[in-house]
C-alpha cells in the first residue's frame, strides 16, 4: 500500500532547536493544524452571523439565495476539488523527490486557483449588474429589502473572506513553484509543501460549506 523512502541527507534541514527531522516535521504539522483550528473560528464568526439571521429571516434568505448564480458557484466547487487533488499529488511528489512533477503540480494548483478567482470575479460583476451589492445600487423588488440586503452582505463577507484566502494560497503556490524549480524541496525537505497543502485543502473545505449554505438555501 505504501512505499517508504530512505532518508538521504535529511538531517541537513533540521533546525537547531530540534533533535531530528521527525520531531521537526511533527511540530510543523501540529502547528499548521492548530492554525487551521484558528481559521475555523475566524470564519466561525461569519458562520454564526449566517446561522442567526437565517434562523430569524429564513424566508427572505431562500428568496435572496435564488438570485445567486448556482452554475458559477457549483463549477467553482468542482474547480477547487480538482485543485485539491493536484495539491495532494504535489505533496506526494515532494515526498518522492520528483522535482519536475512537483513544479508542474504546484503550478497547476495555482492555475486552478486563478480559474476559481476569475469565475468569482465574473460572478461578482454579474451580481453588481443585477443590483445585488449592498449599498452600491442595491435594489430589491420583493418584501423586506433590508433583510435581503443583509443576506447579500453576508454572502459578500463570506465569499470575500474566502477569496482573500484563495488569493493568499495562490501566492504561496507560486512561491513554492519557484522554490521547487530551484530544487529547494529535494532530499526530504518537503515540510513546507506539506503544510502549504494543508492550508490549501482547508480553503477547499470552507468552500464546500459555503456553496450549499449560500447558493442552495432552499430549493431552487
Amino acid at each position: 500500500m505504501s512505499i517508504s523512502i530512505s532518508p538521504a541527507s535529511e538531517e541537513a534541514f533540521v533546525g537547531q532547536q530540534f533533535d531530528d527531522i521527525e520531531q521537526q516535521r511533527d511540530a510543523a504539522k501540529l502547528g499548521m493544524w492548530i492554525f487551521l483550528a484558528t481559521e475555523v473560528l475566524f470564519f466561525g464568526g461569519l458562520f454564526l452571523g449566517y446561522t442567526i439571521y437565517r434562523f430569524t429571516y429564513g424566508h427572505i434568505f431562500v428568496e435572496a439565495s435564488r438570485k445567486l448564480d448556482v452554475l458559477i458557484g457549483g463549477t467553482n466547487t468542482a474547480v477547487l476539488l480538482i485543485s485539491s487533488l493536484l495539491m495532494a499529488f504535489a505533496v506526494r511528489a515532494a515526498k518522492l523527490d520528483q522535482r519536475r512533477a512537483l513544479v508542474g503540480l504546484l503550478a497547476g494548483t495555482a492555475v486552478l486557483g486563478c480559474v476559481f478567482m476569475s469565475l468569482k470575479g465574473v460572478e461578482y460583476h454579474k451580481d453588481y449588474v443585477d443590483h445585488l451589492v449592498p449599498r452600491m445600487g442595491f435594489k430589491w423588488e420583493g418584501a423586506d429589502p433590508g433583510n435581503a440586503e443583509l443576506f447579500y452582505w453576508i454572502y459578500f463577507a463570506m465569499t470575500g473572506l474566502h477569496a482573500i484566502h484563495v488569493t493568499v494560497g495562490i501566492g504561496i503556490m507560486l512561491v513554492l513553484t519557484l522554490l521547487a524549480w530551484l530544487g529547494k524541496f529535494s532530499h526530504g525537505n518537503h515540510n513546507t509543501v506539506e503544510i502549504a497543502g494543508l492550508y490549501w485543502h482547508f480553503v477547499d473545505i470552507v468552500w464546500v460549506f459555503l456553496f450549499p449554505l449560500l447558493y442552495l438555501v432552499g430549493h431552487r
Binding site: T38, G44, L46, G49, W153, L161
Partner: peptide, 23 residues
C-alpha cells in the same frame, strides 16, 4: 480558539463603519 473570533468581529465592525451597512 478565542482570538480569531475577536479578529473577525473587529473586521466586521470596521467594514460596517466603512461601508455604511453591515450585519
Amino acid at each position: 480558539l478565542a482570538t480569531p473570533v475577536l479578529a473577525i468581529t473587529l473586521a466586521l465592525i470596521s467594514v460596517e463603519r466603512f461601508w455604511g451597512v453591515g450585519i
